[in-house]
């Protein structure tokens, strides 16, 4: 362990598309999944992360490095998270929330979920469908029935405009 030897320990992570990444153990253990592997002595070789692709893992590692370099200051950490997520598109956010779930990183998970919710706020059903690429598999009759079921909720809501 780094604390015992005085030299930083580096871990090697492997994405599901076989990309290899080196990351300081002190940053990687922000992931409870990785921390458990380290504590169980299973992190000596390459750590395979079967549910995360290389592009997403690179991004998560950038986050791990960035957030672990900030001292215990919740305000600064929050502002780093906001900045880190500010330029991410929906596909990336959806991939990141899944990766954060798999890696058991609650702080990243909460931040990404809040970001997605923030973007969905006050948007029409049509806008959300287009932005997330959600295929509407309802028949027109089924869709009308869902709206009728929640008619109070849908009053004043446009389903296919851009706002």
């Amino acid at each position: 362990m780094a604390a015992e030897t005085g030299t930083p320990t580096t871990l090697t992570l492997k994405s599901n598309d076989d990309e290899l990444f080196s990351v300081a153990e002190s940053a990687a253990i922000l992931s409870v999944t990785i921390r458990n592997m380290v504590e169980d002595g299973c992190a000596g070789g390459v750590i395979p992360l079967d549910n995360v692709d290389g592009k997403t893992l690179a991004s998560v590692i950038t986050y791990m490095n960035g957030i672990s370099a900030i001292p215990a200051d919740e305000e600064k950490k929050k502002s780093y998270r906001d900045k880190f997520l500010s330029d991410k598109d929906f596909e990336t956010l959806a991939d990141m929330v899944l990766a954060a779930n798999y890696l058991n990183m609650s702080c990243l998970m909460d931040a990404v979920s809040a970001k997605i919710a923030q973007v969905m706020e006050k948007k029409s059903v049509g806008w959300v469908r287009r932005k997330f690429g959600i295929e509407n598999d309802y028949t027109p009759e089924e869709e009308a029935a869902v709206k009728e079921e929640h008619k109070w909720t849908f009053e004043g809501v446009e389903t296919d405009d851009d706002n």
Partner: peptide, 25 residues
């Protein structure tokens, strides 16, 4: 995860997602 996400929205917006597709019903 989706339920966590919907819990961050207002109730009206969370209910509105039921019309997105059957996955969200």
């Amino acid at each position: 995860i989706l339920v966590d996400l919907l819990s961050l929205l207002s109730l009206k917006e969370a209910v509105c997602t039921s019309v997105l597709s059957s996955r969200w019903h």
